[in-house]
């Protein structure tokens, strides 16, 4: 089978997985989209729709849905994993039965495993033989892309072939696919920015002003970059598409799930009710747990990450949290210290 003939596997038929499958199929590749739900599989194959995940999208006929992981992964070279962070390990472990060393595995999950704080590529390394891995991230609201609006994203891997094959599968007039090498940075930026997005949602709902929101988001970016750099990320990654790019869209867009969680919390709704109403996973709710613990373990001051965690899990009122954040002593902005002062 020549490379062009080999299908692309997409694991997970949520809104981002389905949208990616559609984009790859539009580029002329066969796509095997794995879902665990037979009814979803039948709908995709029969009507070329996926009402649960992307209601208005007419799926490209090149997308075939399957419920057997082997059927999806076996013939593919490129395997795209679009599974929520808290189920990622379980699916990886089963996928490990069929994954082979020559598979190229790219995940699109912006989260960390709560209990272990593991990144998704670390989970892949612990559960499978796959070594040629990468991560795709950036300002990518699935619904907008499904509507055909243009966007940019970044594929990051230490393996040139992973980058090359992913770009070949995904690049189009609609989607610009940039390349990067800082896997750790892109994974951490993607996961941690969701916590900042929750704070931005709170600020929007309480209407504290655009200036104050920009202050909050920028200080939040500083916190997550410091945590990221302490864990081995390149600082400039946070200034790229997967960092500031993704942060801008998540903090501004009412479509962002994490942003919506923040707004609902500010309206006084209970977390359990919010998540039930959302019907989808808001990764920031989990990432907040990891973010706080990772910062504390590295003795990094992270007042925003800490306040979001307290709002989510300790009942801190949103108003109190934002008041606290607005009253922090103003120290250094960014860059080097200046003589005679401390930050």
């Amino acid at each position: 089978m020549s490379p062009v003939d080999r299908p692309v596997a997409v694991l997970g038929a949520g809104n981002w997985g389905t949208t990616l499958a559609h984009l790859v199929a539009k580029n002329g590749h066969r796509v095997m989209l794995w879902t665990r739900h037979p009814d979803q599989r039948d709908e995709i194959n029969g009507r070329h729709t996926n009402a649960r995940s992307v209601p208005d999208l007419a799926l490209h006929p090149g997308v075939s849905a399957v419920t057997d992981l082997g059927e999806a992964i076996g013939p593919a070279e490129l395997v795209v994993v679009a599974i929520p962070s808290q189920s990622f390990r379980a699916v990886s472990r089963i996928a490990g039965d069929v994954l082979q060393p020559d598979h190229l595995v790219v995940h699109v999950t912006k989260g960390l495993e709560v209990r272990t704080h593991r990144r998704m590529t670390e989970i892949l390394a612990e559960e499978t033989c796959a070594a040629q891995v990468g991560v795709l991230a950036g300002p990518n609201i699935a619904a907008e892309i499904a509507m055909g609006k243009p966007a940019g994203t970044v594929i990051t891997s230490a393996f040139p072939r992973v980058i090359e094959v992913t770009r070949r599968a995904l690049s189009s007039e609609q989607l610009m696919v940039f390349a990067g090498a800082d896997v750790v940075g892109v994974e951490l930026a993607g996961a941690l920015k969701n916590v900042v997005a929750i704070a931005a949602g709170m600020a929007t709902e309480l209407d504290i002003g655009e200036n104050a929101k920009a202050l909050l988001v920028t200080r939040g970016l500083r916190e997550i970059s410091r945590v990221g750099v302490a864990m081995g990320a390149h600082p400039m990654t946070f200034a790229g598409l997967a960092g500031i790019g993704d942060l801008m869209v998540t903090c501004a867009s009412s479509r962002s799930r994490n942003n919506r969680v923040g707004r609902a919390l500010a309206r006084g709704e209970l977390l359990a009710d919010i998540l039930a109403a959302l019907g989808m996973v808001a990764e920031g709710v989990y990432a907040a747990v990891s973010a706080r613990e990772l910062a504390a373990a590295r003795r990094i001051e992270a007042p925003l990450l800490e306040r979001v965690h307290r709002v989510l899990y300790e009942g801190l009122p949103v108003v109190r949290a934002l008041e606290d954040l607005m009253r922090l002593p103003a120290g250094r902005d960014v860059g080097a210290r200046w003589p005679g002062r401390s930050g």
Partner: peptide, 16 residues
């Protein structure tokens, strides 16, 4: 592999 499954290591070096 880390779960004890047999791995055909030569495939790390193969493309198609």
């Amino acid at each position: 592999d880390p779960r004890g499954r047999a791995v055909d290591a030569a495939r790390y070096l193969r493309v198609d």
